[in-house]
Nucleic acid binder design. Sequence first.
DNA 1: ATTATATATGAACACTTGTTAATTTAAACT
DNA 2: AGTTTAAATTAACAAGTGTTCATATATAAT
Lengths: 205, 205
Amino acid sequence: MSDNTMVHKRTGTKEKILKVSKALFSEYGYKGTSVRKIASNVGIRESAIYNHYMNKEEIFLEVAKDMFSSPFSFNDGEIRESAMKGKAFLHKFAMQYKLLTFDKYNESMFRILLIELLQNKDIREQFMNEFHNKNIKVLSEGFFIMMQNTLIRSSDPMIMSYEFLSTLFYIRLQITLMRYDSISTTSLSTQFEKHVDFFWESIKS
Amino acid sequence: MSDNTMVHKRTGTKEKILKVSKALFSEYGYKGTSVRKIASNVGIRESAIYNHYMNKEEIFLEVAKDMFSSPFSFNDGEIRESAMKGKAFLHKFAMQYKLLTFDKYNESMFRILLIELLQNKDIREQFMNEFHNKNIKVLSEGFFIMMQNTLIRSSDPMIMSYEFLSTLFYIRLQITLMRYDSISTTSLSTQFEKHVDFFWESIKS
DNA sequence: ATTATATATGAACACTTGTTAATTTAAACT
DNA sequence: AGTTTAAATTAACAAGTGTTCATATATAAT
């Protein structure tokens, strides 16, 4: 009963470390957050951290996992149903993306994760699998269904998804950067909607 | 004859520092490149660096400036002429972008600059002005001319440019990441062309 | 030759970093 | 109660950081 999976359940320190780390990493980034600072915010010494995690990176990777694994809320059946509505499907997808973009925690974490994305292979893999591929898959399914029902022109669903997703990403990046500098994003706030409008005009049959 | 602009011309050390820094920053990044390492590669002590640059950041900013200021080679007259050809204009633009993406130095530097983009306000401004705005401007002019000549459907040229540029950026990001991990990019190598094809189908009248 | 200036040096400052080792405290199981 | 094990502590390591300061050298202009 006390094997590898179910030990360490006496103090709840591990959970506290994760919670504190989330807050600190999202605010100060990976390099800006020291093990000492995590420890002191938890209320223990830095050496005690190593009773729960192998090293700093392991903590960060677990924080990142939580971030990427918050997926877009589309159940399997829901995709088909939603895709039949055509433009509304794209709109819903974009609005979910917009929500993430303007959410306080996701906003900071997006910036931090991008930094690490460019330096940490594990983060890159998480990004590719959990973000890129997963989204391309959902979108492709949607577009495929739309094509079947001749709501949109016939084309490669993967390419179409790529085109749709890439612009969402770029908008998010730009908004994130501007908000980080406290620059007003009112001029960009409707960019998501404009993207959907433009894109729909581009593909509708 | 010896005012602020034309002093410091005895040893050429400043130029050497810049050259060495370019190589080091592009390989090891900002934080991975210490002032001591730059100095030793130049062949001087770290303290001598400060006779030429105020601090480490000033060196990096100058390296970055060089990077961003390598603009797309479109002269004013050339845009009009090229835009009249419609799709070929987009193709040329995308191919220039592709060239940059697969150029050894630009490839490393793109990654490094993205990292700093997310942390350094000056880099962000350089990116917005020299990269984003400049490209949106060139593209907008092109699209505007195409619309005048009814080569493409009528729409907001700025939005259209945004849509076109954002995908190029995303492709570049993805290729950069994959090549950094030595993952084969053959599946993505024609993505630029596919983008142009898809986009042209989306806007042609 | 003397002065002025640019450029270099060596040494130090003041501080932070992730991680480990030996040891003690505290809780749970027998 | 005693034993086992988890979890915490104190202390140190070994290294690297950007930057500054007083000083020395070399070059160009006077």
